[in-house]
Design a protein around this nucleic acid. Structure first.
Lengths: 221, 221, 221, 221
DNA sequence: AATGAATGAGGTTTCATTCAT
DNA sequence: TATGAATGAAACCTCATTCAT
């Protein structure tokens, strides 16, 4: 009938293709803020600038939003760091430095950490989610890093360590740093300062906490 | 095994002083399994072997269970590792080894990890909880570790690192190891093997990933 | 009779602007019948031809229904009798006769008496209600009647009485008549017969119970 | 047996006979304060200085408390004013003055008004109560007053009025005075002043509101 | 006679989902 | 495509009542 929605033209549709993404954006924010169970569909709709009913045009249920969120997050991740990681030849410490520095930058961005946090929170309640994320992301990234470490060891760059377990020693500190800040507000003065953390961490990671034997005060001898 | 029909008979259950603790136990399990919002009070009651109403005899609301849980968890934690940490004199690497080994043992126990996981999940929705936990636990433990590191640096045992940031490098790997196992089921073959993780991590933590400069082809054979 | 399927069809019920009023009507009936505490929201909904949830679309809580009821009742009352009362000049007994006759007519209507009855019942539990009703209704009506009596006294129409206390003598009998009927089913044969009550009451109110001193057998002639 | 009621002895029982009355006292207070439905049995027990379970030793249900209350209130009322009312010979105005003065005194006592208020509040929800009270109290008191009026008319003391309806004109003002004070806090300055109300009311009741015809400007001087 | 721990039906309120427009 | 009124299942919480001690 007289559906002159905004400007002109009959049956005018405003960026209808972007709708699902906008809904997912809103859902992600709210799921992070209050958890899946405590987020109301109506709030998601409101934040996306839609009405409640419209959400159900794009997603058949609230849980489908969660699935959609994970699915959307999976796509770009695979391609990003994987190739650079895989193809590299030479000292893996250079790659690790680059990767950690890159990760440090991205961890500061709330949007990047949102998905892991969401998965962490809701994994117990919806086991399918975690499984999907693991299959599509972790099962591809972890072997790549492992391979990098293995080659580094083989080529004499790295000490004889367990590549798989060593991944925890590489990434764990970054995770903990962010988690302490997010959950307890425990940060160095003035902010996350991811670059300082990475610098401190790389020192330890590559050369160890122990003071170098040659110099100054290495205890008794 | 788990049947606590200790004293008189199987039906004798009146005036149990342990009631509140039993309720908290049940609540903790379910909050971990399904999250606070998705856990029904009736389920908590059922798991504790009680009826819905009885839970409200001891706790005025569902949220009070959460508070009670945090409160209960706070008491023993402070005293446990703190004294050993504080009083020690000498090579801090010995202490760190001991502490990490101890932590590794306790992290394997689901009951020990339950509270941190719960706090992690629900912190956003109930900021008071996280604040309380931080004030009573972290604000006491972290400075102690920091002091240990600082003394280690002063006495020449440790390299010149940022003590506060270094804590992330010490603990983070353990956290990540447990988290990967819990959430994604990613473990070394056959189980958590915390002792292996700690061994691998301590090697890196103290001496670094880099191969010792002397023997370039240490892994040659 | 009571089926308000007025406009289109029997199933057409969307976007009724009158919804809140219909809910209040149902609530009032039930609050009178069974009291606020013993009335279930579901019953209110059912009587209004709605589902439980729909009631909460219009009123945020059960108590808000009570407030809405009082608020709605307040508006029309003030204006009705006030103007006629205020502007009148001359023998106040004429006005009082008119007002009492009018009141008698309205007291017979259950809808008119519903609010005072409700306030009476629930005032103790919700002091705010009574206060609001008093401020908006009684504090405006009582002074007007008092003024009428005061002028009547000044102009020599009425005996020297306390205007404020006399209001009780004017209205009290009507209230008691209705209350006895409502609560105990005590009525003159065949019904309330408000007009007979008013006639009897006005006789006493104006001329007193005492027989006229002159003629001992007043009804003889 | 060993009924050492007050001081010592094993299986000590304190004034066990007065218990039901104490429970009823507590119940009456609370029913008045908050209504029957909103009063918890536990609160009644607490106010009576007992435990919840003990209340059920004396009354089989909460509703039985209501019945017990009405039953208890009925006994003394019948005998009190009835005889004096019935036997009196002579000017009924003297009796009415006495009765109203007496009533005025008792209406000021909260304990006396408690039962009527309670009946008023809960009558709709428990029709049996009102019926019992009416049968035992009103059906005996009202005819007595009616008889008094009828005799007063026959003997020429009173004007020809409807005795039954006139009862409303006699008692109504007192009821309204108390009700306004209780519910809305509307009292003459400084308190109920029942004696002033009765004085003002009796003037009107016996001689009417109208100024005496002889002296038009009675208040002139 | 007295207690108070325990129960569970029933009430208020929320919110995912549907559907007429 | 979009809306938002309407629904009703399910959750939290209360409290009358029971019963072992």
């Amino acid at each position: 009938m007289n559906t002159t929605d905004q400007e002109r033209g009959p049956k005018f549709r405003r960026r209808a293709e972007a709708r699902p993404d906008e809904v997912l954006d809103a859902a992600l924010e709210l799921f992070i803020e209050k958890g899946f169970a405590s987020t109301r569909v109506e709030d998601i709709a409101k934040r996306a600038g839609l009405s409640k009913g419209t959400v159900y045009l794009y997603f058949p249920s609230k849980e489908a939003l969660l699935e959609g969120l994970v699915r959307r997050a999976i796509l770009p991740i695979a391609d990003s760091a994987l190739t650079t990681l895989h193809d590299y030849e030479g000292d893996p410490r250079v790659v690790l430095s680059m990767v950690l520095t890159m990760l440090a930058g991205r961890f500061g961005d709330p949007k990047v950490m949102a998905m892991p946090k969401l998965i962490f929170r809701e994994a117990m309640g919806f086991p399918g989610l975690a499984e999907m994320y693991r299959r599509e992301v972790l099962d591809r990234v972890l072997p790549a890093v492992e391979g990098l470490l293995r080659r580094g060891i083989e080529q004499g760059y790295l000490r004889q360590v367990d590549p798989s377990l060593t991944i925890r020693s590489i990434i764990g500190p970054l995770m903990l740093h962010v988690a302490m800040a997010e959950i307890f507000g425990i940060t160095p003065e003035g902010g996350l300062h991811m670059e300082k953390l990475v610098e401190n961490h790389l020192t330890i990671l590559f050369d160890g906490l122990s003071a170098p034997p040659s110099a100054k005060q290495w205890s008794a001898s």
